[in-house]
């Protein structure tokens, strides 16, 4: 929370700063505010520095990019409530859609404006377990066994957690004689094993890694790699389940804001930069799966090949998935109601 609070303060300061710098006659340098989700801090630190160099070389202008991080849903709400974001880079399309539905900040067809559903990098959901895998966890079904303590964030507040939940559901559906009923049963049993339900992915990482709670942490692949990189491979290992979900964290220019702040060209270039070879390299170096096949081939060793399903094919898109699983009174609430 302290990190989150200071983040909010930072975001506010950034917004104030932006307000000041857009006052007439003070156009010293361009600033962009990128409102992102929880575990992308390291990714965007890297990317922003590279983009600033790229923009300087291309136009001679200095651009400084401010970041704001938090649970994906909360971040979208901040933008809807007036946080002056030039671009949003959130955990799932549903939260970007919210900018269209609430206040019309972006057009409805935003996802068609950039290649690959506006998701320049992808990720997937994996398991992080303690070294040696003492509880012998192999696949989704093992998470539902009695005596296994599972850590995952709350899918009602965390974008990553929604991917976690849906990946488990998709796995159950994919089993022989899998059905909605068997999927619901598996997911319910997994959540019965959840001991701490943090509101965001980073909070869950802390719970599992720093507090030592839980046997398995259902995590973004990028976050799992990061935990190992920061804390050493002697403490944790990554397990890849037999089936997972293709997580596409999308990016979008916030039209209303960039038109007001006259930052459309630099904001657009910022997102396009993701699709260049340099951008794709940065994604891969920070453990996000690149879209570019050449870069992907270069990092093939890092990213294990795993069978991935998509939200559209299995769940009929985010709107439907949200209504069926995460809305108030929907399946996620039902599995907790007695």
């Amino acid at each position: 929370m302290i990190a989150r609070m200071s983040r909010r303060t930072l975001a506010l300061l950034a917004a104030l700063y932006l307000l000041c710098t857009t006052a007439p006659g003070t156009h010293a340098q361009t600033t962009l505010l990128n409102v992102s989700y929880d575990p992308t801090r390291e990714l965007y630190q890297d990317f922003n520095a590279a983009f600033a160099r790229h923009w300087k070389a291309k136009t001679g202008e200095t651009v400084s990019i401010k970041q704001s991080h938090g649970g994906s849903g909360k971040q979208a709400r901040s933008v809807i409530d007036g946080l002056q974001a030039d671009v949003v880079t959130l955990a799932l399309a549903f939260d970007v859609d919210a900018l269209n539905r609430n206040g019309g900040l972006i057009p409805a067809d935003w996802q068609q404006r950039l290649p690959h559903n506006s998701a320049p990098y992808t990720s997937t959901i994996v398991f992080l377990v303690r070294r040696g895998n003492p509880k012998q966890i192999r696949d989704w079904a093992d998470l539902a066994k009695p005596g296994i303590d599972v850590i995952t964030p709350n899918p009602k507040t965390s974008g990553g957690a929604r991917w976690n939940y849906l990946a488990a559901w998709a796995y159950a559906l994919d089993q022989p004689s899998g059905s909605d009923a068997s999927a619901r049963d598996l997911v319910a049993r997994i959540y019965k094993n959840v001991k701490v339900l943090d509101s965001g992915a980073r909070g869950s990482t802390t719970t599992f890694v720093e507090r030592g709670i839980g046997d398995v942490f259902i995590s973004w692949e990028s976050e799992a790699f990061l935990a190992i990189k920061e804390l050493g491979a002697d403490k944790f290992e990554i397990l890849i389940p037999s089936l997972s979900i293709l997580a596409e964290p999308p990016v979008a220019v916030v039209d209303k804001m960039v038109d007001k702040r006259k930052t459309r060209s630099v904001a657009t270039e910022y997102l396009h930069y993701w699709y260049t070879t340099e951008g794709q390299e940065i994604a891969a170096r920070n453990f996000y799966r690149p879209r570019d096949p050449v870069v992907a081939a270069k990092y093939a060793k890092q990213f294990v090949n795993v069978r991935l399903v998509t939200i559209d094919t299995v769940f009929g898109g985010w709107d439907k998935a949200q209504r069926m699983h995460f809305a108030d009174g929907a399946i996620f609430d039902q599995i907790y109601a007695k």
Binding site: G73, R77, N102, K156, T157, A327, D328
Partner: peptide, 12 residues
């Protein structure tokens, strides 16, 4: 208070 925050984050 967490219920309230959760609802806000779902735009409710």
């Amino acid at each position: 208070p967490l219920i309230i925050i959760t609802k806000l984050e779902q735009y409710d």
